[in-house]
Design a protein around this nucleic acid. Structure first.
Lengths: 353, 353
DNA sequence: GTGAAAGCGCTAACAC
DNA sequence: GTGTTAGCGCTTTCAC
């Protein structure tokens, strides 16, 4: 019957269904939305025809009339980073439960892309946007982006995992201070005093907060802060962390423990340590952030900070949906991290400092 | 001025712009789309007002009138798997270049979700759907899904990374045979004859093809096929591969090389080997599929098959766009894999079999 | 319970 | 060049 040119077929509409069922389009719409009662008989007829053609209402037409797209836009820095992938999938699952769909964009760290994507999501009339990382991680918010967000905020509520100074964005943050507390208490409890902190950039909010907290905690435990033990790499990847760790060890600086800013960095650090013929955790303990599956795949497996991705995603989406639907939500919410202990950490080696 | 209830503001439309610029809506539309000439003066006025309000045309309304959404839907099995994450990002980048946006859904291996998502994408009137993995990987296609796809294919063209028997889907496949050729030639060239193949499920098309090819190649090189060296795990994760490898080694079966069905599996296999006090690659060589970043993060780093993700994504998207825009494209295209050699592979140990 | 008709925001003929 | 006018495919009053 229908050849290969089937792409040329006129799309079937609610009117086609109505005509064949010998009812009005309004009635078809009623059974589609369940917004009003329809007689059993007609309902049955309509449903059957819908099924016969595998008819699906055009979401654009629907969106035009009721102005709710039931779509949540998500701007992530890069889903190839398993941290974002996990948050994203958690969001998708949570959204699904609430009857929403998610639309994902990757900014790949480019501020310009971020702007374009936010505008695109707005054009798409998503009901809300969730931004995971990117410029909302900046210690000092980009003015241009703030302006754009402010101009769209009336139409499109936003929830971010960091902050955006000068905007009314909702925030769902991981408690960065708390993550450092967990790590440091654990390490210090194991007798570590020479604790390095490696990776990341200080103009990233969460990294900045971690370093601050790290210093506070050293002080609280009366451990001298050694500037040479804290190293930015500028990135959150393995290569950067590896070369910085190499540098450190080559300088004869050998901490008993190192905190990696994320699992990727940890991978690089582990390699550096192993190549310097040190054992993990006997000589050097290593712990990290994010608890992505990498932690399990490495040898030794990695002690890491977990955020409970499911809860994190749920909170992000619930907040977005609540705001989109006009309900009250606190402007700032926090997610509580936990520590997952694996093979890469142990008591400080006797020789210590 | 505008308090926190700004969400209640009426959205600004093309008519608002037109009124303020003292022109007709059509003229505004013209400058928006660039579809016709408008006098410099009016154009300037309009642009300025658009900018003033940060106005963005409603994509739904636009989509309703011209029936092109400029969106490509992507159904992936699970972006938390870096293989899919890499393909997806490659698709997103390629789509961006062609002026398209991508909408991602994760089926998470649930056939029911896949159906729902395909229907949703169709409701959204995406211009095409790209399906990465999931049921299109099945050796024998699911009848129900085939039916659904066939009913939608008229409206929504599909391109898949596997196949869907009984449909007119476009296919962009990785040449599975070729991947095995690369691996086996390399290993046999290094003197390996006891080559294990571990992980995955035989009812997955690409895995099935790999096993078939594996057998063919053994025969061609006059190496006896040893059934005990080929083990399905049912999954593509580390845990499954690890326990199967443990089993094998505990039975005293010690290949000189093992091919892991993907990088995750390789991670599990490496752990098993290390825990059995064997060295890699001196005692056992290990190679795998996908060349995700894991390969670089492991110690030793992993020799793996790469697909050139950028080219793969580009081909997927170009095919989808071409079909959506009514251009001719071959029904079946192939992507050529390459072998990336790292630390985990080397010559067969003398003791061999 | 059901149909007629208006309208959502835009684009695309069609006149002028 | 520019305005007028139909739709695009739905939902939703408003009568009946």
């Amino acid at each position: 019957m229908d050849g290969d040119r089937s792409a040329e077929e006129k799309a079937i509409t609610i009117y086609d269904i109505a005509r064949e069922a010998e009812v009005s389009a309004a009635t078809v719409s009623r059974v589609l939305t369940g917004s009003a009662n329809v007689s059993q008989e007609k309902k049955r007829r309509i449903l059957q025809i819908i099924d016969k053609y595998n008819f699906r209402p055009n979401a654009m037409a629907r969106g035009l009339s009721d102005t709710r797209s039931k779509i949540i836009g998500i701007i992530a820095a890069d889903v190839r980073n398993p941290y974002y992938a996990q948050v994203f999938v958690a969001c998708e699952l949570a959204a699904r439960k609430l009857g929403y769909t998610v639309l994902l964009c990757n900014s790949l760290g480019e501020a310009r892309q971020e702007k374009k994507q936010l505008e695109m999501l707005h054009e798409q009339r998503v009901d809300a946007v969730i931004q995971l990382g990117g410029s909302v991680d900046d210690l000092v918010s980009n003015v241009e982006y703030v302006e754009l967000v402010n101009s769209l905020l009336g139409a499109t509520p936003m929830v971010v995992t960091g902050k955006l100074d000068g905007t009314q964005c909702y925030q769902v943050q991981i408690d960065a201070m708390k993550t450092m507390d967990l790590l440091m208490e654990y390490l210090i409890g194991l007798g570590h005093r020479d604790i390095a902190l490696i990776g990341g950039r200080l103009d990233v909010l969460s990294t900045f907060e971690k370093v601050q907290r790290y210093k506070q905690l050293l002080q609280r435990h009366q451990i001298d802060f050694r500037r040479e033990l804290v190293r930015e790499t500028g990135f959150y990847d393995a290569a950067g962390a590896r070369s910085v760790m190499n540098e450190m060890l080559d300088q004869g600086i050998v901490p008993t423990a190192v905190i990696a800013i994320n699992d990727f960095s940890a991978a690089g650090i582990v390699r550096s340590i192993v190549e310097h013929s040190c054992r993990i955790p006997e000589d050097i303990t290593i712990v990290s952030y994010d608890n992505t599956y990498i932690t399990d795949h490495m040898i030794p497996s990695l002690t890491s900070i977990d955020y409970n991705y499911e809860r994190f995603g749920t909170k992000l989406v619930e907040t977005a949906v609540a705001v989109a639907e006009g309900r009250e939500v606190p402007k700032l919410q926090r997610v509580t991290p936990t520590l997952v202990i694996r093979e890469s950490s142990g008591p400080a080696r006797p020789g210590g400092r």
